[in-house]
Measured scan of single mutants.
Amino acid sequence: TIEDAIKKLLKLAQKGQPYTFGDFTVTSEEEAKKLAKWLKKQL
């Protein structure tokens, strides 16, 4: 689910690992949080 993807994304971001989700490449926890907010709006 999208919720699971968001959780995984935040965990990876906390470890400092870049994470690619579709067109987004997230390289920081701050970016992960922005992406998570955006994804929730898409639901």
Rank of each mutant, 00 (worst) to 15 (best):
K40D: 08
P18S: 06
K41P: 01
K15W: 14
K7V: 10
L39S: 00
L12A: 14
K11R: 08
L9F: 07
S28L: 04
K37R: 09
T20C: 15
K7S: 08
G22V: 14
K41R: 03
Y19N: 11
D23Y: 14
K11M: 13
L39R: 00
S28G: 04
E29K: 07
L9S: 00
G22W: 13
G16S: 04
L43Y: 07
T25A: 08
Q17G: 07
K7T: 08
A13G: 04
A13W: 13
L43D: 02
A13T: 06
K37G: 09
L12M: 10
G22P: 05
L10W: 10
K33D: 05
Q17F: 15
L12F: 11
L12G: 04
I6D: 00
T25S: 08
T20G: 01
T25L: 15
T1A: 09
D23V: 13
E30R: 09
K8T: 07
D23A: 07
K40A: 09
V26H: 04
L10G: 01
L9I: 09
I6G: 00
D23N: 10
L35E: 00
A13Q: 05
W38N: 01
K8A: 13
E29S: 06
L39H: 00
A32P: 01
A36M: 12
T27W: 06
T27Q: 06
A32V: 07
E29C: 15
W38P: 00
Y19S: 05
T27M: 08
V26C: 15
I6L: 10
Y19E: 03
A5L: 15
L12H: 09
A36G: 03
A36P: 00
Q17P: 15
P18D: 04
E30K: 08
K11G: 12
L39G: 00
D4N: 08
L35W: 04
A5E: 12
T1L: 11
K7G: 05
K15T: 10
I6E: 00
K15F: 12
S28H: 02
A32W: 06
S28E: 04
K34F: 10
G16E: 08
E30G: 05
K15Y: 11
E31F: 08
K11Y: 14
L12Q: 03
I2R: 01
L39N: 00
D4P: 04
K15C: 15
E29H: 09
L9E: 00
K40Q: 12
K8M: 13
E3H: 12
L10D: 01
T20Q: 07
L39M: 03
Y19H: 03
S28T: 12
E3M: 13
V26D: 01
P18A: 05
K7C: 14
K41S: 10
K34N: 04
K41G: 06
K40I: 15
F21H: 04
E3D: 06
K8P: 00
I6W: 05
E31R: 02
K15V: 06
K11F: 13
I6R: 00
D4V: 02
E31G: 03
A36S: 05
A32R: 02
P18C: 15
K34R: 08
K40C: 15
V26Q: 04
E29F: 13
K40N: 04
K11V: 11
F24K: 01
A36L: 14
I2S: 01
I2F: 09
K15S: 12
F24W: 13
G16C: 11
K37H: 11
L12I: 11
K34C: 15
Q42Y: 06
F24R: 01
A36H: 07
I2V: 09
F21K: 00
T1P: 09
L43S: 04
D4S: 11
K41W: 12
G16K: 02
A36W: 13
Q42P: 01
A36V: 14
L43A: 06
L9A: 02
K34V: 07
A5G: 02
Q42L: 09
T25R: 02
L10Y: 03
V26A: 12
L9Q: 00
A5Q: 07
E31Q: 15
L10M: 08
G16D: 06
K8Y: 10
T1K: 09
A13P: 06
T1Y: 11
Q14L: 13
E31Y: 08
S28K: 02
L12D: 08
D4L: 08
I2M: 07
L39V: 02
D4W: 10
L43K: 04
D4T: 08
F24L: 15
K33N: 09
D4G: 05
Q42S: 04
K34G: 03
S28D: 05
K8G: 05
G16W: 09
I2L: 10
T25G: 05
V26L: 03
Q14F: 13
T20E: 06
K8Q: 12
T25E: 05
K41Q: 13
E30C: 14
K34Y: 06
E30T: 12
V26K: 03
T20V: 09
E31N: 07
A5P: 01
D23C: 15
G22I: 12
A32E: 01
L39T: 00
A13H: 03
K33F: 08
A32K: 02
T27R: 05
E30W: 08
P18G: 03
T1C: 05
D4R: 13
Q42W: 11
F24S: 02
I6C: 15
L35P: 00
T25H: 12
K34S: 07
A32D: 01
A32L: 09
Q42E: 06
E31K: 03
A5N: 01
K8D: 06
L10H: 03
K15M: 13
K37Y: 10
S28Q: 03
I2G: 01
A13I: 13
S28N: 10
T27G: 05
K11H: 12
Q17M: 15
K34E: 10
K33L: 13
F24P: 15
K41N: 11
L35G: 00
T20F: 11
G16M: 06
T25W: 11
G16H: 05
L10N: 02
E29Q: 07
E29R: 08
K8F: 14
K33W: 13
L43C: 12
L10I: 10
F21R: 01
T27A: 09
A13V: 12
Y19P: 09
L43W: 09
